[in-house]
Design a protein around this nucleic acid. Structure first.
Lengths: 341, 341
DNA sequence: TTGTATGCGTTATCAG
DNA sequence: CTGATAACGCATACAA
């Protein structure tokens, strides 16, 4: 092996030598479509030699020279969460469609680690960055993110207005879920509210509060349990809620995975869903439609979110300031929630 | 913005000018630990200027010069599958730990698209490649993959011996699952067998066959249904199985997501798990422990798999040929399978 | 320790 | 259309 970077399928120089032309000629020939008058004799030799050698352009060298990497950087902690990986895949696909490539990092979900990833991506000369896991409460990081030398788009979660965001309408989603449970006659509705630092969770909680307020229902802070986004968090949160003196008759879990945890906890307590406890989740990840008790949940279009984030970022790379966007969500009624007696 | 690649936090040259030294001095100072005798006056100026400018090294330029990218390429279709994203995250973390970075591509799960990703990664000068979605039946692609200019490690799925693989013991896993159902008294055991092209699915099926053969049970090919890995596949497969004249009393789904689909189909038919139908899954993804009916399944250590794949690849980058490895799996008994009357 | 010179592979500019 | 030349930012062998 010539070196560790595997560039032993030839260089422009080697092609030039074998084809008896100058390097610059090789470069031009390989980057052009066939001219109107057809390839010249020299060009044909170049093409043949390149083909025979299995030439692969060295994008590292080319980026250095052109000062364009055609690459966007992704900072996506919690990749094992379906929501995140679905957005990631959508971004990759949309970027590829536009002639870009995505460079992923999946650091731990704390801002220090995320900042390291950002620095790494910038060192790699990405032309823009998409972040999915901003923390609402970290103003220092937000400030730094808002003053990067390349455009930045937040997706999934957002922070302040300094960082343009492409997100789902979490407030409305939280409102819809809660309103639905209220309409079913529930008045004590617990919420497995996720972490405070995630705007997704936070905004859904705001929607919950608004829906209750709109119906002039009192808000019992004891019914609001902050957890993480994992199934285990749903389990723990549910046990807290159901241990209250006056437990809820319905639970809104701000994400589907936690909702599955709610199901687990209900089972452990011998409670049946939806008869003993109504449940609404959030995201409509594929499996929840197939659960033994199909989950009523809020649907968000993650593909669309990823694509819109890319579109906004690429536009900003060309022009300047990225466009923010809020995508609609909808309630999907299945069978995990039912009318309260 | 100076250019689209955001390198406007200075270059070695700019630092050199402001610090009144030569570029090479800057380069050396910034790459060295503080020497025994402490920094020289010039070095201190360099450090101060670099700090003040917020200098970020241009890794593209440095890779070109050193001919080392310290990057491994990942080809991982189906990133929204928990199994894949968990391996991805484990790889990223293990690579980082060893001073490497992972460059991810997540093309469609066909070999043409995967080959394009490989070419791209090679153009990006990766020092090695990890692939998670090889197809058993594509010998052309396997041949090309085995003759790349950089080391290749397969993980999750494997093909022939030409491509070293770090995989779970799928054969044994399939055997354990089937053996368990046999011990529970089931003799007609259906299998939602996944796609033929995936070695994971295929080997688990082989384990199933062996377990039946070891108990001198006949193998009814009608009980073997090939599907995809999605929940929906489990639904469809289960309906086929349960429509047989002599339907199975137990089902082994070769992955947990499909197993959830089995649950969905059972519900649609008014069948209760495990009373009317026993079920065993595969992978032990986190949510299945929290389902209303906790899933009995085969546990595989995905973190370990990713780490071992990286270890094998990095060793090969230094030495030559990657090491193959088969990781143990274990049966996790929960409540989705019970004794047959 | 520091400066000088050179080149990694590619592309852009300019002249012929 | 083609060739010569320089430069992208960085790292290293060598000389001082």
């Amino acid at each position: 092996m010539a070196d560790s970077t595997g560039n032993d399928n030839g260089t422009l120089r080697q092609i030039a030598e074998r084809a008896g032309v100058h390097v610059s000629t090789v470069s031009r020939v390989l980057r052009r479509e066939e001219p109107a008058g057809g390839w010249s004799a020299a060009a044909l030799r170049v093409l043949a030699v390149a083909q025979e050698m299995g030439y692969r352009p060295n994008l590292v060298a080319s980026s250095l020279r052109t000062r364009r990497s055609r690459t966007i950087g992704l900072v996506m902690p919690r990749l094992t969460d379906f929501v995140v990986s679905a957005i990631c895949q959508a971004i990759e696909s949309a970027a590829r469609y536009s002639g870009y490539h995505a460079m992923l990092t999946t650091p731990p979900d704390d801002m220090g680690a995320q900042m390291e990833s950002v620095d790494y991506l910038l060192s790699r000369q990405v032309e823009g960055i998409i972040v999915t896991s901003l923390h609402r409460d970290d103003t220092v990081f937000s400030y730094r993110m808002a003053h990067l030398p390349v455009p930045v788009v937040a997706t999934n979660r957002h922070v302040g207005p300094e960082i343009p965001a492409v997100v789902g309408d979490d407030f409305n989603g939280g409102y819809l879920a809660t309103e639905y449970l209220l309409k079913l006659g529930h008045s004590r509705i617990g919420i497995v509210a996720g972490p405070r630092h995630a705007s997704t969770a936070y905004d859904r909680l705001l929607g919950y509060r608004k829906a209750l307020a709109d119906q002039a229902k009192p808000i019992d802070e004891a019914l609001i349990i902050h957890t993480d986004f994992e199934a285990e968090g749903g389990v723990v949160g549910t046990h807290s809620l159901l241990s209250l003196a006056d437990p809820p008759t319905a639970i809104f879990a701000v994400n589907d995975t936690a909702a599955i945890g709610v199901m687990g906890a209900a089972r452990q307590r011998g409670l049946s869903i939806p008869n003993d406890l109504s449940l609404v989740g959030y995201n409509d990840i594929p499996i929840v439609a197939q659960l033994p008790i199909p989950l009523t949940t809020i649907h968000s279009d993650l593909n669309n979110m990823g694509a819109a984030a890319v579109q906004s970022l690429l536009a900003a790379i060309d022009s300047g300031k990225p466009q923010a966007k809020v995508l609609p969500v909808s309630l999907v009624v299945r069978s995990s929630a039912t009318a309260h007696a």
